[in-house]
Every structure is written in C-alpha cells, then in structure tokens.
Design a protein around this nucleic acid. Structure first.
Length: 588
DNA sequence: ACAATGATTGTTTTC
DNA sequence: GAAAACAATCATTGT
C-alpha cells in the first residue's frame, strides 16, 4: 500500500546521510595513489607507494627500470614491506598488522622463496616475488594535502515543504516525481532550468561566470544534477564558498560514494594526465597503467597474468560457452591496430593482480618450507596435491592467520584496483572496451566492458524502478514473486506483472525514470565536458532508504477493475491522476 | 550494452 | 594440481 510521503522527507535526509556516510567511509580508502596532488607528487611523497600496484615479479620492471626515476627509492621501500610467506610462525605474527608485515629477513632471504624453486637466477630480487601481494593497511599515510569539502546536511526546509509544493502545482510536468527521489524533492525547490545555487560563490556560480575556464561547462544553460544543486543550495545559511581554484577536487562527496579527498583528480585527457602527474604516469606506465607508448610494444609476457589472459589468451574457446564461433578467418590479428579509435589487438590494461587467497598463502609457505628442507625440485602439481591435503586438515584456527593475511591483501588490492581504475582516462576505457567488444564479436571472449568508475551511472529504466520497488518491500516480494527465490525467474514474474499494468499504474515509475534520466543526462554532460569532479556513481533509487520504496504499488487490490480508467486522458496531468490520488489517499 | 539481483557456473590465481 | 576469489551467466524492459 502507498506509503505516506511524510516518511519520505526524512528519507531525503537519510539518503544524504547515507551518501555522506559512504563518502566518509571512503576516507578510509587510503591508497597512496589517492593522495595525489601536485605538491605531493613532486616532493617525492611517493614514500607511501608501498602499496604497490606494480608487478615486481615480472621481469619487465627491471628492464624498464631506467625509465623510472623513482625506482630505487621504491624498490627499497617495497622490500621493506614485502611480505614473506614464511613459516607458520612468521605467519601468525602477521596477525599483528602493525609492524609485523616486516618480514623476518633472516631465513626468508636465504631460502629464496619460490624464486629459488626454479633454479633460475631471479634472485636478483627474490623478495619482490610477492610484493604485489603485499598489503599493509597500516602503513603511515602521507598527510592529507587537501581538506575535504564540508557538505552540510540539507536544511530542514527541504523536507516537508517541497513535495507539497510539487503537489499543489498541477502544472508540474511530473506531479508525482517529488515523491520519489531525494533529488526530485529538491528539484521541486529548484527546478532544473533555474540557477541552482543561490550562493554566488558556489562552484557552479563560479563556473558559469567563467565559462572560458576549462573546467566550466561551455553551455551556461546546463544544469547540474539535482543532487548537486541541493548540495550547494543547502549550504546557504553559513555560506561556505567553494571555489574551484581553491579546492583541487571539485567533486561532491555526496555525489560520489567513492569520493575520496585523497583521490587523484583524475586527468581528463591523456596529455593532461601525462603533464600533470608524470611520476604517476611513469609508475603506471611501467607497471600498471595502460601501455601508451608505441616505443613499448606489448610484451611477450605480460605483467599481469590476468591482463594477459584478457588479451593474449582470450582465444581460449573455453571462455566461450554458447557462441557458435563463426569460423571466419581471423583477420583482426593481422594488423596491429594502434589508431586509437580502432580496437587494439591487445589489452592495454595492467590492473593490479588479485590478492592471494588464504590457500595461496599457505601454498607458497608450503613450497618454501619444502624448498628449504629439500633441494630436489618439486613437482608443482604434486606439491599442490600434498599441500592441499595438508591445508584441508588444518583446523580453522590454523587457517586463521592465512585468512587474515589474505583478507588484508584483498582489501589493499581492492583499494589499489579502485585507484587504478580511477587513473584510467575515458580514452583508456574506450580503447579497452573497443578491444573487448572486438574480442566478443570475434567470439574470443565473453568479457564485458569495463565501466568508468568516475562516470555517472546509467539511470534505471521505469521497469527497473519497478523491480526495485518490489525488491525493496518484502510484502511486494511475496505478492509478486510468491515463493520464487531465483532472481531469473523473479524477473519473469515481474515482467509479467509489469506487462499487466496499466499506463496509469506505471506512471510513477515512468516519471521517476524520466527524472533520473534528466539528472543522468546533466551529469553525463558535465562529465563529458570534463568539468566534473563529481561523478555520481551513486544511484539514489537503489539506496535502502530510497524514496522509490514509497512509490505506490499497484497491488492486486489496486488492479481490480478500478473506475479510474480515465481512458482517453492523454495529457500528462490527467494521466497522473491515478498516482496523485493514491498519494493523496496516503496523505489523508 | 547496461542498468539490479543473487544463485550458479566457469575462470583465474600461485608455483 | 589444489582452494578460493573473481567474473560471467541468467532472466527481465527500456533506452
């Protein structure tokens, strides 16, 4: 049944609070690569780059060493934090994440770890073999270079008044819309075409008055997403001016759950990128970043097996389950495309490797232990079998240290990966997706495209809004899905329900979708113009407390032959009567 | 192709 | 070859 809009206005605040909380949480996202600003970069505060996203166990970094001005410094650092899978004893010491990450440099070095496993002379730096696994969440972080922008909570007036205002206004295009989203509720106060910030000092105010700034939208009529509007609008009372030139990161924490004040202000263009962050670029260039330079053709052995697999090995038919691969001559490999616009023949991405699982940590320990006591070469398959059996026999407590190390590594890797993804320019992503698309079309891979984490998310369609609505309400779940728990079958049921609904019943969802689409378009436009620091990857409609949950749902009772057929009514306002009435009821 | 969902299935990771 | 993490898959509609 319809939910009172009264609740909803509190939800507006809730949504903001959630978003703030999310942004707050992301403060903990302490990847060193997020700490960039120019000063940091140039005064070699890379000191913390011990959270390596480099793949040191690859031969290449050594070969390319001369390209890296920071190498010696960082190598030293990395070794100091390199994690050594030592004995179980040393392992358990890892429980203390404080300083315990420092490896016992004694026998670990001597045994040469897995490096010596193959008698190859890669003792050059055996300790780097696992540095990419290294994760130490507690390595001291560099001082924050920029303070986060204070985002005030929305003023209380944004609550009750707005939706009522919208309701009393029948000329509104989407009469019901204010009920559905926090952004739309605010939109009621500040409709799209209007100047959305009362403060002259607001970011957008500044931008609009300096349209020639590279960071400002070229189209002054362009409105930001409503959430953004609210953001600055709500800062009115004690006006807290936010100038673009003051804040290096003109993005809204509210807007982006992944917001991180330490975050790199991601360069929008390649050239800008290279110019602004040479050390970073070099770093990524050498290890994790897309290989840009034609001087460095793809290596025969990639840095990352994962990356490699996404490129060179994508022709494994195993990855293609149902595609009937047309056996057309594979002509795409004949020309090593580097046109930029065309699909490259290889993936340029070098994301950080996966963190080792508890098992993997155990296994490397195992290998090392056996290597120390047994000079014969081990058969890896045999070793895995034996170690696997031993691992299976371990008690939960015995596994715990490994689990914890794995967990720490995983978290760090996650941060690294997120940081890495944020460093990708739209061009990088375009190129990679072109590659993946080509691979898919050739039947060589099924991997999906990657998404720009900085770009605004596509809005949900009306039907998906509808799905959200159902999933958000256990009662509706029961009503529509019955006992069906499989999501795919639920989709079928929901689709049937959707099809059975009248236009009037769909109206609120359509309106909501329409509204979010507008906001998305605005956000996208800003993003594409490179003006945005705020990219909302947040989708308000899916937040737990989203007002979408309050959309009146056409319950079975509602579906009974209702007289409100309003058949011929094609005008917006007429067609919305049903929804209005429903909300009206709940209001009364 | 992608938005959400989550159980299931297949792939990747280490040597 | 091991175990576990990761990622694709499915089913839907609308853009």
């Amino acid at each position: 049944m319809p939910v009172s809009p009264f609740r909803q206005h509190h939800r507006d605040d809730d949504a903001l609070a959630i978003a703030l909380a999310a942004s707050d949480m992301s403060l903990g996202d302490q990847s060193p690569f997020l700490a960039f600003d120019d000063s940091n970069l140039y005064d070699n505060s890379l000191s913390d780059s011990s959270h390596m996203i480099f793949d040191f166990d690859d031969p290449m970094p050594y070969e390319t060493k001369p390209l890296m001005s920071w190498d010696s410094q960082d190598y030293g650092l990395s070794s100091s934090v390199s994690y050594f899978p030592g004995s179980p004893e040393s392992t358990s010491s890892q429980l203390d994440y404080g300083a315990s990450h420092l490896p016992p440099h004694d026998r670990s070095f001597g045994s040469g770890m897995l490096g010596s496993y193959n008698d190859a002379p890669q003792q050059q730096m055996p300790e780097f073999n696992y540095s990419h696994w290294l994760t130490d969440p507690e390595i001291p972080l560099p001082p924050m270079s920029s303070a986060p922008i204070d985002i005030p909570f929305p003023p209380s007036h944004s609550s009750a008044a707005s939706s009522f205002a919208a309701h009393s206004d029948n000329s509104s295009i989407f009469p019901d819309v204010s009920l559905f989203s926090p952004t739309t509720a605010h939109a009621a106060l500040q409709p799209l075409p209007r100047s959305f910030s009362p403060g002259q000092d607001s970011v957008m105010g500044t931008m609009q008055s300096h349209t020639e700034l590279s960071m400002s939208p070229s189209d002054p009529s362009l409105s930001p997403p409503m959430w953004a509007a609210q953001l600055w609008a709500s800062s009115s009372p004690p006006q807290r001016p936010v100038h673009i030139d003051v804040s290096p990161i003109p993005r809204s924490p509210l807007a982006d759950p992944a917001y991180d004040p330490h975050a790199t202000q991601r360069p929008r263009t390649r050239t800008h990128s290279r110019r602004s962050f040479p050390p970073v670029s070099d770093m990524f260039q050498s290890a994790s970043a897309p290989t840009m330079s034609p001087m460095h053709p793809p290596l025969s052995r990639s840095y990352s097996r994962r990356a490699e697999s996404s490129s060179e090995h994508d022709d494994r038919d195993a990855t293609v389950r149902k595609k009937k691969r047309s056996l057309v001559a594979d002509e795409e490999d004949h020309r090593p495309v580097d046109k930029g616009t065309e699909a490259p023949s290889k993936s340029m991405l070098r994301p950080p490797k996966l963190a080792p699982s508890a098992w993997q940590l155990y296994f490397t320990d195992w290998i090392q232990r056996h290597q120390a006591s047994n000079h014969k070469k081990l058969n890896v398959a045999q070793a895995a079998k034996e170690a696997g059996q031993e691992y299976a026999r371990l008690s939960s407590e015995d596994k715990e240290p490994y689990r914890r190390r794995s967990q720490a590594a995983k978290e760090a890797r996650e941060r690294e990966h997120a940081a890495y993804m944020r460093t990708l320019t739209p061009e990088d992503i375009k190129r990679e997706n072109a590659f993946r698309t080509a691979q898919r079309k050739a039947g060589k891979s099924r991997r999906g495209n990657i998404k720009d984490p900085n770009a605004p998310k596509k809005p949900l369609s009306a039907y998906f809004m509808f799905l959200q609505r159902i999933r958000s309400d256990p009662e509706l779940v029961r009503e529509v899905f019955g006992d069906e728990t499989e999501t795919t079958k639920q989709s079928v049921l929901a689709a049937a329900k959707w099809r059975s609904m009248t236009d009037d019943e769909r109206k609120p969802f359509l309106a909501q979708a329409e509204q979010e689409k507008l906001e998305y378009e605005a956000a996208r436009k800003m993003y594409e113009e490179g003006t945005t620091g705020y990219s909302s990857s947040i989708n308000f409609s899916i937040l737990p407390n989203s007002p979408i949950n309050s959309i009146a749902f056409p319950s079975s009772s509602f579906l009974r032959p209702v007289k409100q057929e309003a058949a011929g009514s094609e005008s917006e306002s007429d067609a919305d009567d049903g929804a209005d009435r429903r909300h009206g009821r709940s209001l009364a």
